[in-house]
Amino acid sequence: MIKIENLHKQFGKLEVLKGITTTIKEGEVVAIIGPSGSGKSTFLRCINLLEKPTNGRIFIGEQDITDKKTNIMKVRQNVGMVFQHFHLFPHKSVLENLTYAPMKVKGQSKQEAEKIGLGLLAKVGLSSKANEYPGRLSGGQKQRVAIARALAMQPEVMLFDEPTSALDPEMVKEVLDVMKSLAHTGMTMAIVTHEMGFAREVADRVLFLDGGVLVEDAPPSEFFSNPTSDRAKDFLQKML
């Protein structure tokens, strides 16, 4: 469970997040949507402390990750992240991308890490690419590897930062399918996305951010058919 209390983030004078409070329950899939510049990505990146909150607290389980005494590295091992631009390690093979962190960070044996890695590659449908280098993969394949890489650490929470925004349209589905099946396994997921169809179908809840403020927090059935705020109505009109 992730509990976010009054989260503020400022870059210099620019206030990007203006006090966000919400809770993500275990096994819940939350879609975070909103216009660009609304603070969605910053919000997500605060959850694994890639951005340091200026104010407010974030609990993952019982642990206050904004507490100075918290070991950030330990927190991050437990929170997987998938980026818009994949960020695979280009000098490592696909399988090495998956085994690197489990071996170097968790101390898994090579054998164990490779077994888990190959299992994950099978799940994302890329067993045949284990020994390829990322440079040889298509965007959709890269993103599926990136998801597998994050899962290799066996995290409790997965964060997705616009995972399909950098993909060619015909590759979006293969990535969304992987995410969908992941959601069905009961993984706790927070997804920043512009895929309204996906949010509607897969998410348990939609968070609508605008100007650094959490404007709506509702199940997708409610949010998409009866948005309460004008800003959400306006946004949906432009998107759908």
Binding site: N48, L50, M73, K74, V75, R76, Q77, N78, V79, G80, M81, F83, H85, H87, L88, F89, Y100, A101, K104, V105, R149, A150, M153
Partner: peptide, 22 residues
């Protein structure tokens, strides 16, 4: 690319190993 260090950090890789291996 800054994304490389972010990806390593997001996996919980400590600074020294990130520099050396990534």
């Amino acid at each position: 690319d800054k994304g490389q260090s972010e990806a390593a950090m997001a996996l919980g890789v400590p600074y020294r190993k990130m520099m050396l291996n990534i």
